[in-house]
Amino acid sequence: MAQSLQHLSPTALRVAKNYTKGYTDTQTKVRDATSNDPWGPSGTQMNEIAQLTYNQSDFVEIMEMLDKRLNDKGKNWRHVFKALTVLDYCLHAGSENVVIYFKDNLYIIKTLKEFIYVDDQGKDVGHNVRQKAKDITNLLQDEERLRSERRSRGAMRDRMLGNLA
């Protein structure tokens, strides 16, 4: 088994882990959106997660998984960066509970402002994490801006749904 796992691609490995570790569908969605793949998360993925935060049990599962990703080690800097990306999206389009939860736990984000990771090529890839952590910290501390950005996002979504209907 261990031998064969080494031959799996990271994506296939993640699928296997989702299965063997018994992650729920919601948790799997967050894990996929915040994986080590060098692309994404996609808008569709983020939108789906943001909508799920309106359901209380999904909300808890999403926060749990985001917390895990945000506190991951340097080698997995993409987990951290993408978790911040997903979080940023959810703060705009997700339920109010996301805002409350992360205002409560702001220090998790704030302390990522000095995140460092130098990869094998000697490149400091932590820069993206630091910038994103700064942006989100500023947003969470600016009640007025957060309100207006959430409002305009909501209005845009209503318009688009209206057009579709």
């Binding site: 926060m63 749990e64 917390d67 895990k68 939860y101 409560d104 736990n105």
Partner: peptide
């Protein structure tokens, strides 16, 4: 006590 999932 914390709202985060933690293990003291």
């Amino acid at each position: 006590q914390p709202t985060r999932p933690v293990d003291k």
